[in-house]
Design a protein around this nucleic acid. Structure first.
Lengths: 227, 227
DNA sequence: GTAACATTCAAACGTTCGTTTGAATACCGG
DNA sequence: CCGGTATTCAAACGAACGTTTGAATGTTAC
């Protein structure tokens, strides 16, 4: 699908990618300048252009390094589930966990850059710059198709456009939860320390999403074109 | 609560705010330059600094113009519901509608700038720049407290920290849905034209959120500190 | 050891950024 | 009609932006 990971990264490239992950997360893609990035990485200003070509290409590389393996893992997980089920329909909760588990496990990578990337990713979904949204979109498209097919099989009675909407809502819930840093504190006395208890968060997210996905049809909804 | 709306806006200020709403939504706060903004508004480059003081102050003004009345409306709606109920507990769906209705109704303001603002708002929740997140946070804090109290009364059996998490998830679902422009098309053959059928979208969102909010406790979740 | 290549480095490139200035014009109470 | 305030305007400010350059340094192969 992508031929990018075939050439291994040297140390300088890794340092740049790690710095970019953190600074893009903190300041956004435009807000993090080449000088900030190279200073944080401890490399020369010209190193990014030398190793990646341009700032935009660096942004691409940041996403490819983490997102490609993440989506591979998601699909592999789903394949395994279906194989074990041997034709029987999967539980919606299991499909949801196959999708969100890859993200949440990376959050536990506390000292590595994984957590930075996950929060960056949550923000990228609503990034204004078109090229970035397009990049994210094309990186996710095959995974989304795969999971949509799995949901269709698991929920044969749910109309397709209703499913699309509910997948959209689920995706939003996940994206926002990953991106949000201090918004929980808005609502109440937050305990940021257990936001990153990935196991607990996965349970809560799965319960919320599954309930929304399986909620009964209102009946009214399907008359939209009959009027 | 805020003393900003007391001085009426002249035409130049309104033109600037409208242009800012659209360009901030399309390009982000850093991506939309003073020259772009003033050109779109049809005013001189110096007009923003003259009328608002700085670009950052303009950003603040953009949010205050729409968000303050929106939160006033939300709380008024909730007050009315509780008054009509005369002490009886409210349905969770009704509280949810009181919150999301104000946003969704503004989407229907098709030719006005309301739709632009709503999509901008959806993005601002995950904005990297700290001052902007802080601004949004303090503008929302009282409303959040008010709605949290309403949910507590409506769902007395739901543990408080569980409620906070579910409110967080609901907020994310809404924010992402408002911000998303073409991400739905990721999932399947999307029909962007009915994304802005606010009535239908409100039904779908309410059903999804209410199901998540009311989903049964997994039991396991509460053992987190007992272990 | 030296030629060939890869990488790092300091410096500068032209452009665009947000903001400021001071003169020109519009508006308005007397 | 005039004096004073409010607004608009063209021009310029210094700073920061992403990128390029060419020399210096490291690395590898023979």
């Amino acid at each position: 699908m992508n031929l990018r990971a075939i050439k291994p990264l040297n140390e300088t490239q890794v340092r740049i990618l790690d710095a970019a992950e953190e600074l893009f997360m903190q300041h956004g893609f435009e807000g993090a300048s080449m000088r900030m990035l190279t200073a944080k990485a401890g490399v020369n200003l010209a190193a990014i252009n030398y190793h990646f070509g341009s700032k935009d290409a660096l942004i691409e590389a940041v996403f490819h390094r983490r997102l490609d393996p993440m989506n591979v893992e998601r699909i592999a997980h789903l394949d395994r589930l279906e194989q074990d089920a041997a034709g029987a329909p999967l539980a919606a909760e299991a499909i949801i966990r196959a999708f969100i588990g890859a993200s949440l496990r990376m959050i536990e990578d506390a000292r590595g850059g994984g957590r930075n990337f996950i929060r960056l990713l949550g923000r990228a979904y609503t990034e204004p710059a078109k090229p970035i949204r397009a990049l994210i979109g094309q990186m996710y498209a095959p995974t989304m198709e795969r999971f949509k097919a799995a949901f269709v099989k698991a929920l044969p009675d749910l109309p397709k456009d209703e499913l699309v909407w509910r997948m959209h809502f689920m995706f939003g819930t996940l994206a926002y939860t990953l991106a949000a840093t201090d918004t929980v504190q808005l609502i109440a006395g937050a305990k940021p320390e257990d936001r990153y208890d990935a196991r607990l968060l996965e349970d809560r997210l799965t319960a919320f999403m599954a309930a929304g996905l399986l909620s009964p049809l209102a009946g009214k909804i399907n008359v939209k074109k009959a009027a």
